[in-house]
Design a protein around this nucleic acid. Structure first.
Length: 266
DNA sequence: AAGCTCCCCAACCGCATGAAG
DNA sequence: CCTTCATGCGGTTGGGGAGCT
């Protein structure tokens, strides 16, 4: 048996809030505060709404310090940067953007910023047309300039590229294990870009971007279960480019339990 | 003008967390 | 310690507006 519902769903109104309801909720909270109890608030305020719904409406829309309207370039940068550091912890990201809510940031990321980030890879702030700016592209990178895989392949001769494609399917989905604060989760990724300045590649899975580098903090991933291929991949590409071949990082890459137990802050 | 598709975003859902008893 | 339950959070949904044919 599941948990008891927080309210009687048959007796509460759902869906969009009317201006009258907004006005009632706003004036109640401005007069009496939330009283630290959202569950009883709607009854006291005379609203036929679930407490959760009231809380959401207040926090995401009615609060006086909410900033409505488009995001600025500066806010975009903050989101890129924090997304790369901590992933989809929207409330933490929103806390760094005065007047923005977690819902706002999440919606903005999912509907606009992600697309903007992908399309911008070809055009923005590049000092070299073949190398993406690490500053702009922090959302993807651990550090240093980074080259999309497709561009890297274009640099090779047609014959080399064909041989490479015969050997590797560059768009195949690869399984890996991602470390989070609390556990290790199996996920899938595909490789989108490689760094030519540090032993790092960058991949994009369906949910987020992931750096593949020497650090063992949150977001790093285990190369077991097929992602060994990744290292062959990067070295094969880089060796075409006079870049020294990188050794595999020293952290455990084949034993899942060692990966799980490895200290976060090395 | 009508019908269709796409996109945005407000709102909902269910799970995790932590406080209180 | 265990249980209960309010709160907070991230993922997802769906209504409605905008744009296109």
């Amino acid at each position: 048996m599941g948990r008891a519902p927080c309210c009687d769903k048959n007796n509460v109104k759902r869906g969009p809030w009317s201006p009258d309801e907004d006005s009632v909720l706003k004036s109640y909270i401005e007069t009496y505060g939330t009283g630290g109890n959202w569950i009883t608030l709607p009854k006291k305020a005379g609203l036929r709404r679930c407490g959760k719904s009231c809380r959401l409406r207040w926090l995401n829309y009615l609060r006086p310090d909410i900033k409505h309207g488009g995001f600025t370039e500066e806010e975009d940068e903050v989101i890129y940067s924090l997304y790369n550091e901590i992933g989809t912890r929207w409330s933490v990201i929103a806390s760094r953007l005065p007047g923005r809510t977690d819902n706002d940031v999440k919606n903005y990321w999912n509907t606009k910023l992600k697309k903007k980030l992908f399309s911008s890879r070809k055009t923005t702030t590049m000092t070299n047309p073949n190398i993406l700016s690490s500053n702009y592209d922090r959302g993807y990178l651990a550090e240093g300039p980074c080259v999309p895989v497709d561009l890297k392949l274009q640099e090779m001769t047609a014959n080399q590229t064909q041989q490479f494609h015969n050997k590797y399917d560059t768009h195949q989905a690869l399984p890996y294990y991602r470390r989070t604060r609390n556990d290790v989760q199996p996920e899938m990724c595909s490789i989108t870009s490689i760094s030519n300045s540090s032993p790092a590649i960058t991949s994009v899975d369906c949910k987020s971007t992931t750096s593949f580098c020497g650090s063992m903090g949150e977001g790093s991933f285990c190369t077991d279960h097929g992602v060994q291929l990744v290292w062959d991949f990067i070295n094969e590409l880089l060796v075409e480019d006079e870049t020294p071949r990188f050794d595999q990082p020293s952290f455990p890459t084949t034993d899942l339990q060692s990966f799980v137990n490895w200290p976060m802050n090395l």
